[in-house]
Design a protein around this nucleic acid. Sequence first.
DNA 1: TGGTTAATTAACTGACCGGTAAATTACGGT
DNA 2: ACCGTAATTTACCGGTCAGTTAATTAACCA
Lengths: 108, 108
Amino acid sequence: MGRLDGITVTATDQLSVVFAALADPTRRAILDRLAEGPATVSEIAEPFAMTLPAVSKHLKVLERAGLISRGRQAQWRPCRLEAEPLRPAAGWMSHYQVFWGQRRKLTP
Amino acid sequence: MGRLDGITVTATDQLSVVFAALADPTRRAILDRLAEGPATVSEIAEPFAMTLPAVSKHLKVLERAGLISRGRQAQWRPCRLEAEPLRPAAGWMSHYQVFWGQRRKLTP
DNA sequence: TGGTTAATTAACTGACCGGTAAATTACGGT
DNA sequence: ACCGTAATTTACCGGTCAGTTAATTAACCA
């Protein structure tokens, strides 16, 4: 994502990573689940019609975005929500608050 | 995105489309630009180190997300911000506010 | 009519994404 | 030591994405 000086640069910017992580219904559902408390990978995977490795990949995306953290208890890897990265994302959006609610007044 | 009954379904859900549109720094910069008023495609493209067709594609992504609309004046196609789709996205995020602090930044 | 400017479309490329199946790692219980 | 369970890694597939160049459409103007 993004191109500078002819060299493609893989988006390292945090906002892009966070929004990209949120751009998938499965991952949002995982965050919703974790909002109710920590859970193991199998517990997280249970409601979804996909294999465990697929869920594992989603968790990796969320982890790289800083939206979850993982501990270790025996062979279980409990995941917990880390909402802090949502703050700058919501902050970016908040600048647009003035535009939603009513139609813009402008002279085209 | 998402799988139902063995058939992969390309994410039609609005939240995913909006977050995906925001997951690119160029597109966010375009929205930032449009927050200051409507602009033509060439005006929008000017600050970016990429070709006009590339910008045109970004605009199409934003348009499909409902985040911009386009008019027509002669050969110019003025774009304007349409912030309404940001509301449900911000609304989804707002549920997590409690996890990153008690301060309220977004209206529900 | 033809020419100029604005913007999109078409065709192509390389990288990434979401998913799978199969193999592998890591730990606990007996 | 072995087996079972939890989870990740590897290798692969088809589709999408961000960008390019070249061709095309659309409108104005002389």
